[in-house]
Amino acid sequence: MLSADIEYYRPATIKAATELFFSLKGENKRPVYYSGGTEILTLGRLDLIQPGALIDIKAIKECLVFEFDRNNLLTGAALPLTYIEDANLFPLLSATSMGIADHTARNKITLGGNLCGQIFYREAVLPFLLCDSVVTIAGQNGVESLPIGQIFNQTFQLAEGQFIIQIMTERRYVDLPFVSIKKRQQWETGYPLLTVAAIKVENQLRFAFSGLCPFPFRSKEMEDELNKAGLSLPERVKRAIGHIPGPVLHDVEGSSEYRLFVLENTLNEIIIELEGR
């Protein structure tokens, strides 16, 4: 529960949502887009964020699609994660999603909320990074679609008042061989010590990571090293680790040294599995 008195809106259209955002903004009401809302409520109760008005996007039909449109899978930002898992149109996304929080929480957590959250794991982004998906966003200047590589750098680089409507993923990617592994400090509960998702595209492996750095990422440099078939597996992994694009996390989930140890093993496991397929 939030201590402050806030306003709540549930617009039915994209246009209404963005207009509302800017009019609330004009009144100095600190609007935020609200999807599953779990993070807004949990950070808000600790006074770590102070939203003044919530714009719930769950009534916007474009945010709720999950279907193939010709050659693209459209995945709406307001879909609950369990909905995505149950429909299972995108097995890699299902697999990665199932590692997030817990089943009941994922009935509420939405794709868009996980992608845009402050809690920096944002694991649901990994499949889209791997598949070079295209992100459709709405904002003051209407709706636009951008390759994820352009708009995602550690976080989604959204301008004020923008929100994600849906993500398009080419059909050819969704059935590719994949691995999604989440390793935790202990057993099967908790934030990632390390989450790695990987797919095999035309004999090349792609990797995306969460829990390794304080942001999720896909690194072409690491992929280049990991795909150097001429080198021994340990050497490929070792070289890839040299290209980690940021500080390796060192926190209560695990030390950076241990994370690197687990990373090494995990990359080995994944490569052996995917190259064997």
Partner: peptide, 16 residues
Amino acid sequence: ILNPQLRTYRPIRFGE
């Protein structure tokens, strides 16, 4: 204390 919540302080769960 860095983990004063049940998402970071984790009693055993069903299935574990």
